[in-house]
Write a protein that binds this DNA or RNA. Sequence first.
RNA 1: GGGCUAUUAGCUCAGUUGGUUAGAGCGCUUCCUUGACAUGGAAGAGGUCAGUGGUUCGAAUCCACUAUAGCCCACCA
Length: 906
Amino acid sequence: MDKHYDAKAAEAKWYSFWEENGCFHDEPGEGAPYSVVIPPPNVTGILHMGHALNQTIQDILVRWRRMQGKNTLWLPGTDHAGIATQNVVEKALKKEGKHRQDLGREKFLERVWQWKEQYGGTIVHQQRKLGNSTDWKRERFTFDEGCSKAVVKVFRQLFDEGLVYKGNYIVNWCPRCGTALANDEVEHEPNHGHFWYVRYPVVGSEKGVKGEPYADYVMVATTRPETLPGDTAVAVNPKDERYAHLLGKRVILPLTGREIPVIADDYVDREFGTGIVKITPAHDPNDFLVGKRHDLEQINIMNGDGTMNELAGEKYVGMGRFDCRKAIVADLEEGGYLDHIEDIDNQVGHCYRCHEVVESRLSKQWFVKMKPLAEPAIAAVKSGEVKFVPDRWSKIYFNWMENIQDWCISRQLWWGHRIPAYYIRGNASEEGAANSEQVFVAESAEEALEQAKKATGNAALTLADLEQDPDVLDTWFSSWLWPFSTLGWPEKTKDLDYYYPTSDLVTAQDIIFFWVARMMMAGIHFMGKAPFKNIVIHGIVRAADGSKMSKSKGNSLDPLELIEMYSADALRFSIALITSLDCDTKVNKEKFEIGRNFTTKIWNAARFLEMNTPQEGFSPIAGPLTADEKHILLATDKACRKISGILENYRIQDGALAVYDFFWTQICDWYVEYAKDAPDKNRAFAILRDVFFKALKLLHPYMPFVTEEVAHQLGYLKEGESIMREKFPEGYSEEEKAAWGLDEQVYDFVEKKREAITALRALRAEYKVAPAAFVNVTVATDDARAAAEAESLKKAMRAETVDFVPAGSDLAMPSKMTAFGTVYLSLEGLVDKAAEAKRIAGEIAKITGFIKSSEAKLANENFVSHAPEAIVAEAKRKLQENKEKVAQLEKLAKLFICLRNCLYEK
RNA sequence: GGGCUAUUAGCUCAGUUGGUUAGAGCGCUUCCUUGACAUGGAAGAGGUCAGUGGUUCGAAUCCACUAUAGCCCACCA
């Protein structure tokens, strides 16, 4: 083996080997499978730390289950990401000085597909670098033929069920992008704005002259005076006594002269502003709801591009909304309606894409009625059919699902699944086909034509008479079908039958609502079964200071760079080790050294084993084994059992820790050191060889590349074989354990022995005994097995002699008490430190403190009678031990005083 | 405003149903390089578990309140 591990070469070699040999591929078979669908990244995306974490967790689970022998499918793919992708292509067009309108819909879409073919594979290639064992033969795209078919089918079905409807609704609207935005696509930012206090004269009151107050008016505070022409009421709180007299009266809307009612609604906050609110149902979401409750007219005064229309008043037509604001304010002042202006700080929504100020706009959009879909999805989690891991996320899920709002699914984009709704040409209103009332929802234009013929009684209609709704569907409308559309639905495929419902869904907390909850609803509604059994939610990877990673902040780490620097295994292992499911993870570059160092350790340990492999090979493990040999076999057995149990519970981090500790501490630090000087080296190394392969297999889900490479280098596997096809170790059989004489007592005995060795090392360090010096050691113990360990102790302690005396022997030498026995270090002939006396006094004080607290505890009647026997016995034993320790230290103190005296005499 | 979560060593975090003197990694201190590995080895220092009160024989762990931080939802015209 080479002195250094070449991660890059190994990663490239093994990934293509696995892929070419179908190691990732699965076909329906016998028995319950393990299946997972990947959260599809945006096709425009590049791999970031969030993906690295998310996919590492999935790959660990997937590789582990596959090695357990289950049929295992991890299905990859990408999301067409409507707005994001369209934006990328529009930007490219802009460089050519073109706009999408210049190309027209068809040509533009061609361009997007071209872009997708050329660059869309970026993230998919990057994912391979991570070592993902995804079944690339089944890679899907939310906009591919099959997924698109599923989308149309679902839309049609929901429409027929009355769950999809077209409605007037206030949506967040970006005037620049010309599309509705989902709530999450709006970014609220602090804004320094103004409150304009405007007087609305009460009908019937005397009109004042220009510039003077009206005799009777209501004062309204608004941040958006340009919407004033759309007001259809003013509202007060029903409990507000100040304004009780106004109820039922009407006021005059300034500049228009229109009369509007004064209404009472709980929505109005008495404390805020003047306590009187103007109600503009077409331009504010809250006002919209108030308007619904009071049956108010909705006056839409704005065009889609943010300019004013004729309903705003002749004077303002064609003005931009902000120019119009200025004009209206000026006119209000002119007319004497403006009382005063106040500076305020508020929040204003911006488009997450182009940063334009978002407008609330009344428009016709398509919606999905969510309540009927949500109910069974809530029930599935309540009943335990589907579990959240960690469980606390179920609360958040319920909270959202129980207060669910209808889902606006139409987007005014071109890149996406076009809404399968058709209208008779010419019926469309000015705002486009979406406003036509006569709509035919069908899976094809031909089918829609049949419907139209039937509905109109006009058999002469042709396809040319129909036009399709121009809008496309929200991207989530395809991703919510992901767990079954990717398996072939609506066709009844073998895959669908075998792999659905999937086993685990692994994702970050930020898309529980947008994606997870909706998949639950779609899965139950269309498949009759929830789409997965467990929803594993992990945190977000954050920068070292706890802030979110973002390119613009420059605080993001690039997983590909980390792979380049430390290797994919290092990235995977480190991230698994430092991430707990329960909270976000803060990372910096240095953290990934953990994994890099561990990789090096594995490589070097493998080299050591290789160097010690006899030419003729190892003989089978037989004969009476030494305690250390039994111990490592038991430790291996424990590790195997422990790790599967840990992974069953998704404790990825604990698993990483366990396997790290097993390999580094148990194998490298202790067993390898033992094996170097073992009485029967061939047997010791035969055991090491066996244990080592098990360790590699345990490690494989975390570190696929180095484990595969080492397994081949050491000859565990022949060419053409893969560690991926090995069985995940389950520990040794009862027969093996019996044959080798493995039992817990031996394990504990070796643990104790190690304690003695550590104690001696500590004594050497404390008394500054040169590392190379041979020392004389005495151990006071009654353990009958001790004598057999004299040789191994001598080596581990670098001792000239190791003598045993009965426990309780009282020697005047520096000592440490251990579970094995009291270890004494003879200082004769070695450097001494007179100042030790002081240190010992400190130690005596410390232990005396413990003794006092133990004595107090044992004197406590309540403790003795209530606590379990074992606890009481343990307390007594500890007390006794501490007492002995103090006695020993006191003796030692005397010795040091004596030594010091001797020194002084010199 | 409503909800959720966190607060344990200098830093990042474990701590399973309450049970001896609270752990790991990194960092720090001391020592060790012809030895598989200095990307290493040995030893060590460092914590009144955010605070207060309660339940209990016993609390980092359970309960209440307080403080601080973070996240989500709804957002004030």
